[in-house]
Design a protein around this nucleic acid. Sequence first.
DNA 1: CTGTTAGCGCATTCAG
DNA 2: CTGAATGCGCTAACAG
Lengths: 309, 309
Amino acid sequence: MSPETRKRVLRIIEEMGYQTNALARGLATRETKTIGLVIPDIMNPYFTGITRGVEDAANQRGYNVILCNSDEKPEKEITYLRLLQSKQVDGIIVCSSRLEDERLSSSLSRSKRVVLVNREPVNTQMGSVMVDNQGGAAAAVSHLIDLGHARIGYLNGRPTSNSTNARLSGYKETLRRIGLAQDPELVVDDSPDINGGHRAAIRLLRLKKPPTAMLCFNDLMAVGALRACLSLGRAVPDQMSVVGLDGIQVSEVVTPPLTTIRVPQYDTGRQAMEALAKLLADESLTLPKVVVPTELVVRSSTGPCPNHA
Amino acid sequence: MSPETRKRVLRIIEEMGYQTNALARGLATRETKTIGLVIPDIMNPYFTGITRGVEDAANQRGYNVILCNSDEKPEKEITYLRLLQSKQVDGIIVCSSRLEDERLSSSLSRSKRVVLVNREPVNTQMGSVMVDNQGGAAAAVSHLIDLGHARIGYLNGRPTSNSTNARLSGYKETLRRIGLAQDPELVVDDSPDINGGHRAAIRLLRLKKPPTAMLCFNDLMAVGALRACLSLGRAVPDQMSVVGLDGIQVSEVVTPPLTTIRVPQYDTGRQAMEALAKLLADESLTLPKVVVPTELVVRSSTGPCPNHA
DNA sequence: CTGTTAGCGCATTCAG
DNA sequence: CTGAATGCGCTAACAG
């Protein structure tokens, strides 16, 4: 055909909004430019940040992301994993999976590229992004010890979560390292949200020998603890110090602003996607394993130990 | 083959984790069981709730959702829309689009099923889910008037957004209906976040004749306003009433807890997906158009007008 | 370097 | 009712 006709045809095609069918392309090339993201719950601000980090990094590299909320239910997680693979996603990022190693790896086809967030890889083909939860909790405890606190309570989340265990052991480890007594009644479990924090804090406050400071599994629990102190008439930080973990937005908005350990959610997500992109680009590369650091943010919910002053 | 062999083959297939290739199926059936969700920003708690509502309803119906953050940038939105269509999603939900009608409809192929959230449909083939923003703002103003306030400031968001305009006109409309004077200097624009609210509130508080109450475009701005009051020494609600809009989680956690207009984000998302599913199921159905109601939640940031008492 | 063809893995159609 | 052929729209390998 003449070059002129050709041009006209191309322009018309453009005008009519023609776009190549990505399904057909995917079938032919075995590349969909789509990845799957499995998280417990997008409504949890912690995972919201991760999601945004993943999406930005993905978009930048020409990938789309399919969002899956597992609600920490193993069956839901497995169903999503199957679905994602049947949709031929190029890779999958799984956050805070609660599946046993066995079920997790059997739900993933051997060839699928996977990056785990907040969980040790279950085989040698997965990348991983680990937040330094243990170090974060340790820094929080050290901060309280520096302020003179010796009886430090810990509001634990649900013990089945990886982050929970890492943070708990950061707490215990630090107490031991410093040589402080560990009173088992100072560690209480509850759901990792505001209500759970409230309940757990009340239990601690009603102890015969209550702690002078409380470290909380996450900021949401810390907010609940703040409220518990308020309702029982304990002034924060004068009579009770409270420190959270995560550094979500509410932590700076509550009264008093929360001393917390900032965990860079956005960056975690971004790194996860970058690790996945590396796996996707180069098969034989050494597995990406990144550790995301945490940072102590001192605000107004912690102060010197009253008895100690 | 023998039925026994057959059984064994099927079992092996099952064990090896075989799953049908959704790409190939999609190519053949022209149905991908995937939808696209375009929102400004998942980090905004308002959209987080919508997203979860969409995802739940989608999952329940066997759909996956591709998440797209547009950051309210027209080019980004258009790019995503093209991408989603090239991936042959069955339908698209677009939240708070800032595109002009022309560009929005030309970015969508005529056959694609679309549901708009917080925006009037631009043609007769789209479904829509509208939050009753105007009614919500009106209820907030009425609440303040009932408390005796006559000078009511309004912290407006960016005037290019649909929600902003609806809320602003709810405010103006109510003042007019009651017969209260409208002082233009009582309406200030700023970015719809904590810092924007802080700045805007300061401007209002420094007026020669400051208002006795402030209505804020959203809860984030209201939190900023609360802080502004604190920093300028105005007691809330004794010297200044503040009301927010949205009912996100922070609104109940700040001090004092915010009186606000609750907008059911989750339900908005859910309804949007249900509307889309209807469009997908039945071509000739009357277009789903749903209006989501709002609800006044009175907490502790509003009180009687001091001069009036 | 351009133009043609086979095949990706399904669903659907048609024949047996 | 079961089994083989056709095509979905694209890319890749191939031939001209």
